[in-house]
């Protein structure tokens, strides 16, 4: 089955982004596909390459590893990024910055959309 995931929260404020990461891992470990992960609202902060939590999991690094291992489509919303000062120069490798239309495409091309936020 083909999944897409929507992430609405930044790391390190709420658990949502961690939950999304764990869920994505489990989807792939079970042999299913991920069409894409869309980072919206404060979720765009997941793409920040300067995040550096001392002595704990670095969610940015984990996302990048996951993206590279499985060649996934990671999109940070361009409008949400502009509002929050996220841009291509600040973004981790593997993240692209593009419009909400990409979320529409992910929904069209997936069997399931699972949202993590709040």
């Amino acid at each position: 089955m083909r999944f897409s995931i929507l992430v609405l929260e930044s790391p390190y404020q709420r658990q949502a982004a961690d939950s999304a990461y764990r869920f994505a891992r489990a989807v792939l470990e079970k042999g299913h596909q991920i069409r894409g992960i869309f980072f919206y609202m404060n979720g765009v902060h997941n793409a920040n390459k300067y995040q550096k939590p001392p002595g704990e999991r670095n969610l940015g690094t984990l996302w990048t590893q996951l993206q590279q291992e499985h060649n996934l489509d990671f999109v940070a919303c361009i409008a949400a990024s502009t509002w929050r000062g996220m841009n291509e120069d600040l973004a981790l490798p593997g993240f692209r910055i593009a419009g909400l239309g990409q979320l529409a495409l992910m929904i069209q091309e997936s069997d399931r959309l699972v949202t993590f936020g709040g």
């Binding site: 089955m1 999944f3 609405l8 489990a26 989807v27 079970k30 299913h32």
Partner: peptide, 19 residues
């Protein structure tokens, strides 16, 4: 349940996220 079971549940049922 584990995250793997969570994935199975989502395969069986579409999701209403009550955030």
């Amino acid at each position: 349940i584990t995250y793997e079971d969570f994935v199975d549940l989502v395969i069986e049922h579409n999701v209403v996220p009550w955030l």
